[in-house]
């Protein structure tokens, strides 16, 4: 049974579901974010918090009426992001970014980032830093 379960885990991984056991997350993703509510926002970075257990940055997002709201975007642990080559200044205040992620369950302007894309199309914090900057 255990072997079969381990096999099913690997199958799930191969199928593209990367599971984050809550056991090794620094909190429970599903308790805070809603995997059924994807969200995409575009705006200007106002602040970056490169701190454990999860890095965060904040983005001013303007709606269709011109109202600006500051979104709190959560990333992974700096301890791992740093090992992939990312640094606290990989994203800078004033950068224009598009964030695709999952909405906070509490209805606040918050999201867990799945993909962060700069205005020039480069992705930030996904994959290794070296691969994401081929032109440099």
């Amino acid at each position: 049974m255990r072997n079969n379960r381990a096999a099913s885990i690997l199958i799930a991984l191969l199928a593209g579901f990367v599971l984050a056991g809550p056991g090794q997350a620094h909190h429970s993703f599903s308790a805070e974010y809603d995997a059924d509510k994807p969200v995409e926002v575009t705006g200007t970075v106002t602040k970056v918090e490169w701190a454990n257990p999860h890095a965060r940055f904040y983005v001013d997002v303007k709606d269709e009426h011109g109202n600006v709201a500051n979104w709190n975007i959560e990333l992974g642990p700096p301890a791992i992001l740093q090992r992939l080559g990312w640094r606290h200044d990989s994203l800078k205040i004033g950068d224009q970014v598009t964030v695709a992620g999952y909405s906070a369950k509490d209805g606040s302007k918050g999201a867990n980032a799945k993909k962060v894309t700069l205005a020039d199309g480069r992705s930030v914090f996904a994959g290794s830093q070296a691969e994401s900057k081929p032109s440099q």
Binding site: L19, L75, I80, L84, N112, A113, K114, F125, S128
Partner: peptide, 22 residues
């Protein structure tokens, strides 16, 4: 069934898998 406590974040286990692959 949907993936449990999914690692949709840019970090945690997905990043660890990324790290180990490299």
């Amino acid at each position: 069934l949907s993936p449990g406590l999914t690692a949709t974040t840019l970090g945690e286990l997905p990043a660890l898998f990324e790290l180990f692959s490299k």
